[in-house]
Write a protein that binds this DNA or RNA. Structure first.
Lengths: 192, 192
DNA sequence: TCAGGATCTGACCGATCGGTCAGGCATGCT
DNA sequence: AGCATGCCTGACCGATCGGTCAGATCCTGA
């Protein structure tokens, strides 16, 4: 057998990303990953404590960026929050679209895993920002449509270059989000 | 002949729908379903040939409605197709949101199953209709964002009454879809 | 040269998966 | 009564899952 160097760690990570993106987290076995790398399943578990650790390492960077976006949004309000939330999430989604692809709707279950304990609350705050911190039902629905749609589109159009995907998604986001009642920017909106 | 059969068949179907919606298709075992019904796993497999047959029966009606929508869209063009596609899909998604919820991102894999062989092509034609049969990239992305977003929103807001969810989604769809009423003469306008 | 750590393997584990099977228990028909 | 049929069960099957383990192989430094 091909005896390879410690790049195996990275190889395993890359193979896992590829398989997860196609067959999902639950739908991908450690055997699948090992087969794609060309090593034994035991080798995979030598480099990673368990299957969840693999996922956690794959998602570490995007989760960190998401956390930064969350912090930034906490300082904004109204239309500013709306705009920054949309742009921030589009940037994040485009940049990490391969990582997003591998979550493929397993979100509800994966969020229950320890590694993603905080993501649920962050995404709720993100939706809140996208509504401009209003609580109108349609605004909340629009925000969720947008987040889920962008995620899915990024997973689907992995091969479209960033500089085509990003402006397209930004234009879509601008249209989708309901404009706050006062359209012009300089008016501080009222919070409840 | 048709004896007064216990409602076990329907009970199993309902239990499966509930479990699938929470833990997904792959994430739900026949044991789980049997436990929720209060019968044996073998009883589940007495009423349904296999796990896939359970899913197929759950999705039969929504799939039929989707097929009807596909037929209708084949007769339309341009803005008509766009409008009919959006309204038709919103209606379908709202009406069958519980069924949609149970697909929870397992779409890519489930579509590979025999029962859903044709769905892939239908959804491609639906996206095409939502673009007004243009092939601009942004229009295609917008259509996919909308379809995926609506599906997810319907799965998320299962408890919102139809007469609130439907108009909200229609308004969102109208905003999200790129307008093609003024036919694109030359270059699309550059923003920013 | 050789010790020792890093890397990797095959064999194996218990659990659970989807699915099969023979038979038990009612009930209704003749 | 006797029989057939619909409904359901527990026991069981092979496959696969995530994960463990003892040891083989490699590389490096003393």
């Amino acid at each position: 057998m091909a005896r390879v160097t410690p790049q195996t760690h990275g190889d395993i990570l890359a193979a896992a990303a590829r398989r997860f993106a196609v067959t999902g987290y639950k739908g991908t076995s450690l055997q699948d990953i090992a087969r794609e790398v060309g090593c034994s399943k035991a080798a995979v578990l030598y480099h990673f404590a368990n299957k969840e650790a693999l996922l956690a390492e794959l998602m570490a960077k995007p989760l960190d960026v998401l956390r930064q976006l969350d912090e930034q949004l906490a300082t904004l309000d109204g239309a500013d929050a709306q705009r920054a939330g949309a742009e921030g999430f589009v940037d994040l989604a485009v940049r990490f679209r391969r990582e997003i692809a591998l979550l493929r709707g397993e979100f509800p279950e994966l969020l229950a895993q320890p590694a993603f304990a905080h993501v649920q609350r962050i995404s709720e705050r993100l939706i809140d920002a996208l509504t401009g911190h209003t609580d109108r039902l349609e605004a909340r629905i629009a925000a969720l449509v947008l987040l889920a749609g962008i995620s899915e589109a990024c997973a689907e159009f992995v091969d479209v270059p960033d500089d085509e995907l990003r402006p397209a998604l930004l234009a879509i986001a601008r249209r989708t989000l309901a404009p706050l009642d006062p359209p012009p920017p300089l008016d501080p909106p009222v919070n409840d």
